[in-house]
Structure formats: structure tokens, C-alpha cells
């Protein structure tokens, strides 16, 4: 942890347009890049027994039917619904998949600083503050006010003690957390969870390629500071994070769409100075 100028790497997904140049000063709200960042591929059933309800260029809402297909020899109909808000971009020539593009999204700086360099897939920012690196983590970069929770010993305690007050906040737990905490935080819309440790087996059940949240999709950003098993935060990290309670901090996983076990890049928390 240091108060020297730090380099913060912000990943830019393919297809996005970078809006800043090297040397620019940025505020947390400054837009670094824009573009259709959330593209989804919807598989269409084999054969041609379906009808597309939208044509390329049509806007779609999440949950809206984009295609309808016959089932049971015409006795039933099944709808294929859009998984996101956005635009229907294209259907491939063989009519086996369609690409849905999410609404225009903006990647914001989230911290105050200066643009050090701009490359194809990343923008490097020079910022001041203290950085804590996590051993493991996932999720995109977020910023939010630090909200501290204490150690919970039973799942029912988790359900009783965590509520809507966590929405949009970076939740900090200085000790071991139960796996139920992550799913509960996702339900209430927390931005991130920064914790000392947690059990890996239940976490892997959630985030494995065959789990309900592959690579942590749909869960808050996670930063595990100490490791797996029962550990508490080290004194230095506990002091720094404890002092940040109530302040807005930056938290990010190491990559945009995949799990990284041994960094770099690392999951990190940045407390702006």
C-alpha cells in the first residue's frame, strides 16, 4: 500500500471506442470508452421450424420474444426471448444463431487521475491513493461507498442481517464470509464484496463453467484479500480498509469475462487519496 502515484489499468472490451487521450485529466464520471459492450449470441434451434419476430436493427427489451418455434409437431409454440435490452444486430447465413447487441454502454473512470497511456484494449490511468491487492476475485470495475458487515455464522443470520441498504455499495467484511453472503448481496444489488477469506468449494459451485454464475457473471465484484479457508484481514489491510468506511472506493476483478487464478492482473481495491 502506498500513496505514491499508482497505475490503474482499465480494460476496454473489443468493439468499444476510446474517448480519452494520453495526458487527459479524468474525474470519476469521465467516460473512458463507449460502445456496444454487451453482446450476446442466442442459439436458434436446428431446422427451419421457427419464425423470427424481429429483423436486424430492431430494438428489443429484455424478456421480449425474438423468435417463435413450433414444438410437438405444431401442437405447441415456444418463444425465444431476448436476454438483454438492446438491438438485434444480425442473424447468420445458416440461421442457427442471432447476435443481440446491448444498449450503448459507457465505461467511466470511477477515480480521479490522469490518463497515462491508451492502447487497443486498455487505458492506463495514473491515480493517487492506496491499493490493496486480492489473491482472487472476479467482476468488472465498480466504485461505491464502503459498507462494513460483521462475520455471520449461519445462513439465516445472513438473510436477517443483509438487506437493501447494501445496494450500490462496496461491502467489506474483515473476516471469513459464508457463501450465502455473495448470493444475498447479488439479490440486493451490492456493487462489490471485499472480504478476507471464504470457502472455495461452494464458491466454485457458483462460478464454475457449469455453475449458475459462470466466471462470476450476475454476482457482485469480488475481491478476496487473504485467501481461502478461515482467515482474518492482516493488520495493514484491516487498518486501511477500516479507515475507508463510508468513503467511495474502487474495486475490480482481474479480467472482464474470465477467471484468473494466478495474476497478474490481480483483483484490487483502490482507496483514492
Amino acid at each position: 500500500m502506498t500513496r505514491e502515484p499508482l497505475t490503474l489499468v482499465r480494460l476496454i472490451p473489443p468493439g468499444a471506442t476510446v474517448e480519452v487521450a494520453a495526458g487527459d485529466h479524468v474525474e470519476p464520471e469521465t467516460v473512458l470508452a463507449t460502445g456496444h459492450l454487451d453482446r450476446k449470441v442466442l442459439r436458434l434451434p436446428a431446422g427451419d421450424n421457427f419464425e423470427l419476430l424481429k429483423k436486424p436493427g430492431d430494438p428489443v427489451k429484455k424478456g421480449e420474444a425474438v423468435a417463435v418455434m413450433e414444438e410437438l409437431f405444431g401442437l405447441g409454440l415456444r418463444e425465444l426471448v431476448s436476454p438483454c435490452d438492446g438491438v438485434m444486430e444480425s442473424v447468420n447465413a445458416r440461421r442457427t444463431a442471432l447476435v443481440l447487441t446491448g444498449s450503448d454502454a459507457k465505461i467511466r473512470a470511477l477515480v480521479r487521475g490522469r490518463v497515462e497511456a491508451v492502447e487497443d484494449s486498455e487505458v492506463r490511468l495514473q491515480v493517487r491513493g492506496e491499493r490493496i491487492r486480492g489473491w482472487f476475485g472476479f467482476g468488472r470495475a465498480v466504485a461505491g461507498e464502503v459498507y462494513r458487515i460483521h462475520e455471520f455464522f449461519t445462513p439465516s443470520e445472513v438473510r436477517r442481517r443483509i438487506g437493501p441498504e447494501v445496494a450500490g455499495r462496496v461491502v467489506l467484511c474483515a473476516s471469513f464470509v459464508l457463501p450465502e453472503v455473495i448470493t444475498t448481496l447479488a439479490r440486493y444489488g451490492a456493487a462489490a464484496l471485499v472480504c478476507a477469506s471464504l470457502d472455495f468449494a461452494p464458491l466454485w459451485d457458483l462460478i464454475s463453467p457449469t455453475g449458475p454464475h459462470p466466471a462470476g457473471r450476475g454476482l457482485p465484484t469480488l475481491v478476496v484479500v487473504e485467501g481461502f479457508g478461515v482467515h482474518g484481514l492482516g493488520p495493514e489491510a484491516a487498518g486501511t480498509l477500516g479507515a475507508a468506511e463510508g468513503r467511495v472506493v474502487y474495486a475490480a476483478g482481474p479480467a472482464l469475462d474470465r477467471l484468473v487464478f494466478a495474476g497478474p492482473p490481480y483483483a484490487e481495491v483502490l482507496i483514492p487519496g
Binding site: F136, D199, A262
Partner: peptide
């Protein structure tokens, strides 16, 4: 099993 999973993860991240 739980302990082994934690050790595996520690091995993978370090």
C-alpha cells in the same frame, strides 16, 4: 473435501 478445496485454491492463486 472443504479443506482440500481451500488448499487447492490457495495453491492455484499462489
Amino acid at each position: 473435501a472443504g479443506n482440500v478445496a481451500n488448499k487447492v485454491a490457495d495453491v492455484l492463486v499462489r
